[in-house]
């Protein structure tokens, strides 16, 4: 009977909700194991000892979360990063493009509805959003925003049966049914700007689809339903920087991209989920110290 912890840090509980979406598998898992800590589901204060599997949602944005993750690591056998925020920093990681204090000031003092507010002090913010791997060793990641329920089920059942889960994914395109002709429209656009040909690869039509630079395994639900892949499963295996991988590919295809491209418009496409773990932000962080 394994002791499982489910916790949310700097995230939005979506992944925990996805975990609960396990349905029958959840029943099975719960029957055979013990959910010892899950504040989203059951009220709890202290982090218990002797955790077998810690499932962590959300990244780290303040010292409180930093302490918690360290404590969890100490007390756990296996730590799983659940979802994009825990794994790569996630959408909150885009905030790293602005220095922490400036950001706090904008949000609490200079935003619609928060004019001249008070900047909260009960928590000590870090300068940046971090994936949990910046502080502790992570054994497995289940990527996605939110993660696929099947991935969660597979990871848990495999682990609990004493085996090591293996992820065998390449890129989203691998599962994408769209037809690829190999010819790319040189004008880039975003999916709300035009209605795409439903059968043909979106990127070829000039829609900024992150599929090629994104770890597969989700079954490509977004492009299948006519939406560009936003890259929620992070960079592909062996790739250290999702956004740069995409720029390398796009400049390989179109050479000159700048006229079509502004960082402001596309940073949220290239790095929607992975800016906090990108080499770019790592360099920026080091330089600004």
């Amino acid at each position: 009977m394994a002791r499982i912890l489910l916790i949310g840090l700097a995230g939005d509980s979506g992944c925990q909700v996805a975990a609960v979406g396990l349905h029958e598998t959840l029943v099975e898992v719960l029957a055979a194991n013990e959910l010892i800590y899950a504040p989203t589901l059951i009220d709890a204060k202290e982090i218990p000892d002797k955790i077998d599997v810690a499932i962590v949602e959300g990244g780290i944005r303040n010292t409180h979360e930093e302490e918690i993750i360290k404590e969890i690591r100490e007390k756990s056998g296996v730590v799983i990063a659940l979802g994009a925020c825990a794994a790569f920093g996630g959408i909150p990681g885009l905030a790293n493009l602005k220095p922490g204090p400036e950001l706090m000031n904008t949000i609490y003092n200079n935003w619609r509805g928060t004019d001249k507010g008070t900047i909260p002090t009960h928590l000590v913010s870090l300068d940046e959003q971090h994936p949990i791997k910046d502080f502790v060793k992570v054994d497995f990641i289940i990527p996605g925003c939110p993660p696929e329920v099947t991935d969660i089920a597979y990871t848990l059942t495999t682990l609990l049966s004493g085996e090591i889960p293996k992820y065998n994914s390449t890129q989203v395109c691998d599962d994408c049914p769209k037809e690829r002709l190999g010819v790319y429209e040189p004008e880039l656009k975003r999916i709300h700007e035009e209605i795409p040909d439903p059968d043909r690869c979106l990127l070829e039509q000039g829609f900024f689809c992150m599929g090629p630079a994104t770890m597969g395994g989700c079954g490509a639900p977004c492009p299948t339903s006519g939406n560009t892949c936003e890259g929620c499963r992070g960079a592909c295996l062996d790739v250290t920087d999702q956004g740069m991988a995409m720029i390398d590919a796009m400049t390989g295809l179109l050479n000159q991209l700048k006229d079509e491209f502004s960082v402001e418009t596309y940073v949220g496409q290239l790095y929607r989920f992975t800016y906090a773990e990108s080499i770019l932000s790592e360099i920026a962080r080091r330089r600004n110290k």
Partner: peptide, 12 residues
């Protein structure tokens, strides 16, 4: 193990 046949190499 890494390639998902996106076809970008072929096009470039």
């Amino acid at each position: 193990d890494n390639c998902g046949k996106c076809g970008i190499c072929r096009s470039v």
